[in-house]
Design a protein around this nucleic acid. Structure first.
Lengths: 139, 139
DNA sequence: AACTATAGTTAGTTTCGCTAACTAATCTTA
DNA sequence: TAAGATTAGTTAGCGAAACTAACTATAGTT
């Protein structure tokens, strides 16, 4: 049975995802973080502040899912909230501690990412990233 | 904050995964299948028969996880088991009904995969698949 | 002012991963 | 050849993380 290029692509794509995400989870566990918590922290760090609605959209999950993670991060003292453009909306930012743990976990995750992609040029990595963004827009 | 090529890569990679897998889950739900069930059926179909241990290894999960999915598929009548190389081992194959549902779901999933990767050459798809396999070996 | 929409929360449910512990079968070693 | 170690697979139970439903409060629209 011969598979077409896109079929092979998605098989290799999903084959890569689980072990990668598991390794990432192991690294994060050392910092006392879960994957959803990390994903949230990283988005906030990279954009300085986000609302729960934005976080839900970016991570492709429903708002109650984000609500729970935000609650956990508040309890951990890693984020704080401020009022958004009206009294419904909340802006979420990292605390000093949140920034510290972001920096630390970032280094460890980047190390993994570097090791996994070692030997592949930046040009090729960028090209693939572009294609991923393109495909994402079709979903 | 400037991100390196591999950092962008893994962000776009994980950004693509969830919506893709969710769309796939929606398609499979129409056939009454879950993602783990589909993953299992597809691996068996593409290799004619597999053992639970092989399924666990290929899908990067623990054996009890596969055991449960196999049980579900047996109850659905989509697979059957035969004795393996000894009395511990089980070979798992698709039944006629399993093959039918495999063919049907396959077509729908392939359609999604084609649409998502439309406009990207087979050469480029193959190149990316190769890199995924390479990265997988480093995890 | 009434209705609709949005932001976010809470509660409960389901799915799916895991670990621990187990049985049965096979292999290895002394 | 028997005892110990290993492997294949199963069962039970737990926890994480997703969802839907329903809700409150706030803002926008008609």
């Amino acid at each position: 049975m011969e598979l077409k290029a896109h079929q092979v692509f998605f098989r290799r794509f999903t084959d890569l995802y689980r072990p990668f995400i598991q390794k990432t989870a192991d690294i994060l566990a050392e910092e006392g973080l879960t994957l959803p918590q990390w994903s949230t922290i990283r988005l906030i760090a990279e954009q300085e502040e986000m609302t729960p609605a934005e976080l839900a959209s970016k991570q492709y999950v429903e708002k109650p899912t984000v609500s729970r993670t935000v609650q956990q991060l508040l309890e951990l003292g890693l984020i704080e909230t401020r009022q958004g453009r009206d009294r419904r909306e909340k802006k979420i930012l990292l605390t000093d501690e949140g920034n510290q743990i972001y920096e630390k976990a970032s280094r460890a995750i980047e190390k993994l990412e570097r090791e996994v992609s070692d030997g592949i040029s930046e040009q090729e990595m960028d090209a693939m990233s572009g294609r991923f963004a393109e495909m994402r827009r079709r979903l």
